[in-house]
Deep mutational scan, measured.
Amino acid sequence: CHSECLGNCSQPDDPTKCVACRNFYLDGRCVETCPPPYYHFQDWRCVNFSFCQDLHHKCKNSRRQGCHQYVIHNNKCIPECPSGYTMNSSNLLCTPCLGPCPKVCHLLEGEKTIDSVTSAQELRGCTVINGSLIINIRGGNNLAAELEANLGLIEEISGYLKIRRSYALVSLSFFRKLRLIRGETLEIGNYSFYALDNQNLRQLWDWSKHNLTITQGKLFFHYNPKLCLSEIHKMEEVSGTKGRQERNDIALKTNGDQASCENELLKFSYIRTSFDKILLRWEPYWPPDFRDLLGFMLFYKEAPYQNVTEFDGQDACGSNSWTVVDIDPPLRSNDPKSQNHPGWLMRGLKPWTQYAIFVKTLVTFSDERRTYGAKSDIIYVQTDATNPSVPLDPISVSNSSSQIILKWKPPSDPNGNITHYLVFWERQAEDSELFELDYCLKGLKLPSRTWSPPFESEDSQKHNQSEYEDSAGECCSCPKTDSQILKELEESSFRKTFEDYLHNVVFVPRKT
Rank of each mutant, 00 (worst) to 15 (best):
L169K: 01
K226H: 14
Y167Q: 14
M346C: 10
E231C: 10
I114P: 00
S402A: 05
F311Y: 14
R332V: 12
V390R: 12
C317Q: 02
Y355M: 02
R179T: 13
D335H: 05
L345H: 15
H222T: 15
F290I: 15
G183T: 02
L161A: 05
Q306L: 10
A316L: 14
I379T: 10
K226E: 04
E262L: 05
W344E: 04
K103R: 11
S402M: 05
A168M: 07
M346H: 09
G125Y: 14
P391T: 02
N307K: 06
K350L: 10
K337D: 15
G140D: 13
L153R: 11
I135A: 03
N387G: 09
G110P: 10
L201F: 11
D312Y: 11
G139S: 05
V359K: 01
F311T: 14
L143N: 07
Q121S: 03
S158H: 09
L143P: 07
L219R: 05
K218S: 15
Q199H: 11
N320K: 04
D377K: 12
L180H: 09
L133Q: 00
N130A: 04
G125Q: 13
V325R: 07
N263G: 15
A195D: 03
V128S: 10
P329T: 10
D197L: 05
P410T: 09
E283W: 03
L279F: 15
R281K: 10
Q354I: 14
K407W: 09
P304I: 13
N263K: 09
Q199D: 12
D384V: 14
E146W: 10
E231H: 08
P351L: 02
L349M: 14
E231Y: 06
V390G: 07
L362I: 13
D315W: 09
L169I: 06
S269D: 10
R165P: 01
L169S: 07
P287T: 10
L266M: 06
S173E: 08
S321T: 09
W322T: 02
I327R: 07
D289V: 01
G110L: 13
Q382V: 03
V308H: 01
P411H: 00
G243Q: 13
V363G: 07
N399H: 12
S230P: 02
Y270I: 15
Q258W: 11
I327Y: 14
E156S: 09
F175A: 13
P411S: 14
A144Q: 12
N200Q: 14
N334G: 13
T273W: 08
N141R: 11
Q199C: 01
Y191V: 07
F290R: 08
S132Q: 15
W207H: 13
P288Q: 06
R165V: 04
S132L: 00
P329A: 14
K301H: 13
E184R: 10
L107K: 03
K267H: 05
G240Q: 15
R176V: 12
Q339L: 11
D384A: 15
F174H: 07
H222W: 08
V104C: 11
T118M: 14
C228P: 02
L392C: 12
G159W: 02
P351Y: 13
I214R: 08
K242Y: 02
R138W: 05
N307T: 07
Q216V: 11
Q216T: 11
S158I: 12
T213Q: 13
V170K: 06
L172A: 08
I157H: 01
S389I: 00
N387I: 05
K277L: 11
Y285E: 02
K407S: 03
I327P: 02
V324A: 14
L293I: 08
N307Q: 05
N190Y: 04
K350S: 07
T383I: 00
T353G: 14
L151H: 03
T273E: 13
R370S: 05
S192D: 00
W207N: 05
N198S: 06
S239A: 13
M297S: 06
G131R: 01
W205K: 06
V397F: 15
D384L: 15
R176F: 06
N150M: 11
L280S: 06
R247C: 04
P394H: 13
G295H: 03
V359E: 00
I137T: 13
N136K: 04
L133H: 00
R370T: 07
E236N: 11
Q354P: 09
L186E: 06
I188Q: 13
Q306R: 13
R165F: 05
S158F: 12
V238F: 15
G139C: 00
R347M: 06
L406M: 05
R370G: 06
D315L: 06
P304Q: 02
R370D: 04
Q339S: 06
Y223L: 10
I214L: 13
A145E: 05
I357M: 03
K253W: 14
S116R: 13
V117M: 09
G131Y: 02
H341P: 14
N136M: 11
P330N: 06
E283G: 05
F220G: 11
N399S: 12
C317W: 04
M346T: 10
K226R: 12
T118L: 03
S319D: 13
A259T: 13
Q339N: 12
Q199W: 06
M297R: 01
V308G: 15
E122T: 08
A374G: 09
D289A: 02
D197W: 15
Y372N: 15
A145M: 15
D326V: 02
P329E: 11
Y300I: 11
K301G: 10
S119K: 11
I404V: 12
P410H: 13
T185D: 05
V325A: 13
E236M: 06
R332W: 09
W205P: 03
G189N: 09
A149Y: 12
D367L: 14
L169M: 06
V324L: 10
D249P: 11
F175M: 08
I404A: 04
L196S: 10
K226Q: 07
L151G: 00
P287A: 03
N340M: 04
V359L: 13
G183N: 00
R247F: 08
L294G: 05
K267N: 07
F358D: 03
R202Y: 14
D328H: 10
K177S: 12
L349Y: 00
S132V: 02
K350W: 15
S192M: 03
N198P: 00
F296K: 00
N334H: 07
K234M: 00
S119M: 08
Y191T: 08
F290A: 04
D326H: 03
D289W: 03
F174V: 07
C126Y: 04
V397Y: 14
I404N: 02
L345I: 11
P336L: 11
S333V: 11
E246Y: 07
R202G: 08
I154P: 00
C228E: 02
T254L: 10
N224V: 02
L161Y: 02
A316E: 15
A120N: 01
S402P: 10
L107Y: 12
I114F: 02
E246N: 15
S319L: 09
G373D: 03
I134R: 08
G343N: 14
A385H: 03
Y194I: 10
T113K: 13
C126V: 02
E109P: 06
L108S: 07
N198G: 01
L219S: 13
E109T: 09
E156K: 07
M346P: 01
S389P: 02
K218V: 13
F193T: 03
C105E: 00
R176T: 14
G131E: 01
W322H: 10
I271M: 05
D289R: 03
K407F: 04
V381A: 05
H233A: 02
L362A: 12
R272K: 00
